[in-house]
Design a protein around this nucleic acid. Sequence first.
DNA 1: CGGGGGTTTCCGTAATACGGAAGCAATCAG
DNA 2: CTGATTGCTTCCGTATTACGGAAACCCCCG
Lengths: 259, 259
Amino acid sequence: MSAEPGKRRPPVRAVTGPVLGRALRILEAFGPRHAALTLTDIARRSGLPLSTVHRLAGELIAWGALERDTAGRYTVGLRLWEVAALAPRGQGLRERALPYLEDLSQVTHENVQLAVREGAELVFVERIAGSRAVPVHTRVGGRFALSATGVGLVLLAYAPPELQQEVLGAAIRRFTPHTVTDPQLLARMLADVRANGFAVSDRQVTQDALSVAAPIRDPAGTVIAAVSLVVRYGSFAPQALSPLVRSSARAISRALASA
Amino acid sequence: MSAEPGKRRPPVRAVTGPVLGRALRILEAFGPRHAALTLTDIARRSGLPLSTVHRLAGELIAWGALERDTAGRYTVGLRLWEVAALAPRGQGLRERALPYLEDLSQVTHENVQLAVREGAELVFVERIAGSRAVPVHTRVGGRFALSATGVGLVLLAYAPPELQQEVLGAAIRRFTPHTVTDPQLLARMLADVRANGFAVSDRQVTQDALSVAAPIRDPAGTVIAAVSLVVRYGSFAPQALSPLVRSSARAISRALASA
DNA sequence: CGGGGGTTTCCGTAATACGGAAGCAATCAG
DNA sequence: CTGATTGCTTCCGTATTACGGAAACCCCCG
């Protein structure tokens, strides 16, 4: 087959074999707006042939990674959820941090968020909606850009330099007129975050909200997550919130250390 | 298919191909007491050759289904947790039910549990620990036998008859002197559950706890989950709790219907 | 420096996954 | 009733892929 005399074959290490790769692409076909799909939907969204999807989805169902709902559509299965509940950076983190997040919520009645970094984005691990709080559109398990939120700024500030370069180099998405999109300015803000130990996102995501976030660290000092309070703009001064958020972040760090 | 003449081989369709089957066995190797494993651990627990585990785990890591912690051990990855957060019977159910569970918690200050059935066991989808409550050893994402708890009795009472036979036919595990292990008696209790619309587990799991549970139904009337209150034995009469639990269950059913 | 636990790479063989195509089963429109 | 549409399931010959034993590797520890 490779009968060509010429030197071809760039040894592009295929990192995933066909079967697993395809199975994982099936899982990827699901998303917040697509929690229940027909077989054909999956095939379309994953770019796989229908018969392939049929075969693999059958295997995933047999194990419990997928299920079919009453309408016959495919959904993510409980068995997968059980296993995923063991993820240290997901449920594990969530459970250990929850009491402290609830304290923050009780004391302020504002929104509390907990997030970790995954590549060049963040994933919300918990969110407590305050009773008299600004509506915030975050979903547990949902993703968001690193560049705008309080938690995102913290996670970015302590991310590996290469990743910071990558994010600063790419176009920075604008959400409001206050969103910082200038790489220079953003770089300076990240330096401030490192210097101060907390981040402030002032109306960068929505016009009426401001968030203050602080880093959560593992015993080695590496930043592994971030907590934030999200309040209505004008209701609190950032300076008033930062000690509260910082001390909560430290308490959570300590709770994680004694695992 | 239903030809009588020759005894056909029972069509023992191998339902899972090698690759996926092995990959899923790797995921199964993780558990509550085994959230971080070495490659060798996984090989031992899954019964797979080391080189096979190495290859497949590598693919799972490349995708994010697994991660390696600071000690180099393998853990369940955040990417998998993200996808699993889309499971309708897991996070989906949890999110929609949570407000009602919190109401129950606020009103009683006791333990609240939410569970679904998976095969012949139950899986806890949420648990709220009451401030002045009996310590209960349940873990979100954890499994338990159907035969003893309040939620278990509800889920079993409305499970398909074959499954009830299976559970009643097998040896029923005893937790306390009060655990019902007689199949006859248990069958009668299940009939009562169906007749009354709620279940009571009286010190069947621990000596000091009693739980009252009620079914949550989908729009078609099928029981898909169960809620319960777990209280210290003697602190509340079951009759006092059942209206509360039943009405919460109905409220959750309604909330799910308007999805 | 030797031994042990864990990890990574290699590679010939055998078994498996692949997916196009055709058949099936509802549901809907006319 | 009929034909169209959408979605699901089965089949099967080929070629591609997964398989895993073995050996090298890499600490860390005594």
